[in-house]
Nucleic acid binder design. Sequence first.
DNA 1: GAGTGGTCTAGACCACGCC
DNA 2: GCGTGGTCTAGACCACTCA
Lengths: 262, 262
Amino acid sequence: MTPTANDKRPPSQRIADDLRQAIESGDLTPGEQLASERELAARYGTARNTAREAVRILATEGLVVAEHGRGAFVRTQAPVIRVAAYLTPSSATGQRATWRGEGEDQGFQASQDIVEVATVAPPPEVRERLGLGDDQLTVVRRRILRADGLPVQLADSYYPATIAAGTELAEAKKLRGYTYAALKRLGIELDRFVDEFRIRMPSPAESRALELSAGVPVMRLVRTTYAVDGRPVEVADQVLAGDRYVLVYEVPASPIEPRDEA
Amino acid sequence: MTPTANDKRPPSQRIADDLRQAIESGDLTPGEQLASERELAARYGTARNTAREAVRILATEGLVVAEHGRGAFVRTQAPVIRVAAYLTPSSATGQRATWRGEGEDQGFQASQDIVEVATVAPPPEVRERLGLGDDQLTVVRRRILRADGLPVQLADSYYPATIAAGTELAEAKKLRGYTYAALKRLGIELDRFVDEFRIRMPSPAESRALELSAGVPVMRLVRTTYAVDGRPVEVADQVLAGDRYVLVYEVPASPIEPRDEA
DNA sequence: GAGTGGTCTAGACCACGCC
DNA sequence: GCGTGGTCTAGACCACTCA
C-alpha cells in the first residue's frame, strides 16, 4: 500500500522523480543541498549507486550540480547577460558595440584574455566560408570573454592571411576599438554579416575553458563578415556558455511577417 | 611502457577519450556501431560498468546514441531546419510566414498537431508578460510542429481570455493562415515582437514529446507580441529541438554596429 | 536464443572540502 | 578526521532487438 509498491519505475527513476518534484515545487530551493547519496540510499533502501544514479539524472537535466567533496546542490542560475537586439534597426540606438561597453550597460565587469594570435591553416568550415584554397593560411585571434571574471564566451576570429598578415590583427594585443574598426583602418568597408546559430553540448575542452557544470549546453555562433566588394573578410567562431546568456530581439511587426503560425 | 601505464586518467575516461578520438578522426563514422560494452570491458580489462561509463560520457556529450537491445552508435546529425533571417528587412522578401510554407521552401513535409486548446490560469512568466492580474485567465493553444513526421517544436501560445474567448482562437482547430491573421480579423493591429531566447537541457516531458536522445539540448523562445496600442496580446512559448535547427541571420553592416569586438 | 543496453547490489578505495 | 562525491569491481537479472 505504500507508494513504493506496484511502482513500475526503476528505483533510480523514482528517487530522481521525487527530487525533481521537490525542486519544482520549491521544497528544495536553488542553492540548497540535497541529501547525500548515502543518505538517499538508506532512505530508499537501495545501494548507494542507485541513489547516485538518481542524482546524476538530475545533473544531466541541469537541475542539480554535484560538487566533489561538498555535496549536490539545486542549481542556482548564473547571472545572465542579456544580449540586446543588435539585429534590429529600431533598437540600435544607444547600443554599445564592444564587450566592455556591454559590461558597462549591464553592470558587469567585462574583461578579455587573448589566448593566442597565430597564423594557421584554417579548419575546413572556416576555409570554406572564407573561400580559400587548400594551402592558404589565416590569422586567428583566440580570446576568452569574461563577465565579472567568469568566462562566458570563447571567440575565435579568422582572417585571410592575405589581409591580416603584418597588420595589427596579427599582433597578440588588444585592438583599439573592435575588429571592425581595425578592418576599416585597413581600408576594408563592411557590407553585411551572416550569422549561423546552433546549440549543442560542449566538448570537454569547451567545458573546461568555460567552467561549465554538467547539464549546461552551449550556443555556437559562426559569423561570416563580407566586405562591400563581396569578399568574405572574417569568420568569427563563438561558443557561448548556455546558462549565462539570454538573447533578446525586438522586431517591428511590419513590414516583416512572423515566420510561424501560432 | 604501454600507453596504459602511468596514465593518470581513470579507465572510464581513457576509454571515452579513445572513442572520442576515433570519432573525431573519422575512424568511427556517423551511424557506425561502437564495440559493445562487454567487448570494451574485455579489451581494456575493466568491469563492464567501467566501459559502460565511458559510453555514457560520450552520450551526454551528444557524440553517441545508445539504443536498447541494438547497440551504441555514433550520432548522425538529423536533417536540419534552417530558420531564415526573419529579423532583417533586407531579407524579408519572398519569405514564407507559415510552418507549411517553411516546409515547402526547405523541402520537408510540414505538419502540426493541435494538442490542446483550453482556457487556463497562465503560468507566472506568461501572466507577467501579458500584464494580467492574478485571477485573469488565458486561452492557450498547444501545438507540436513536425517536419517529415518528426516533432521539432513545441509551441504554446497564450492570449488574454478577454481577447480570445469565444473567438476562433479558442477553438481546437487549425486557423486560416496563422495566428497573426486571426488577430487581425479580431481588429488587432500588431506593432512589434519581443523575443527572448535561451537554451537548456530538456525536461523529461519535453524530451519525450520531441523524441530527443540523451545529450541534445533545446532552444526556448518566448515571444511577446504587442499591438499598436501598446497592449501585449500574445505570449508564445516555443521549445525547439536543439539538433534540428540552425538559425541563420543576415544582417546589414550599417547603420548597425556589431555588438562585439573580435 | 543470442547479443545488446538498462538497472541493480554490496561492497571497496580514492580525491576533495572543510573544520 | 570525517563526510562528501568519483571511480571501480564482479557479479546478477531484466528488457529489448533481431535472426
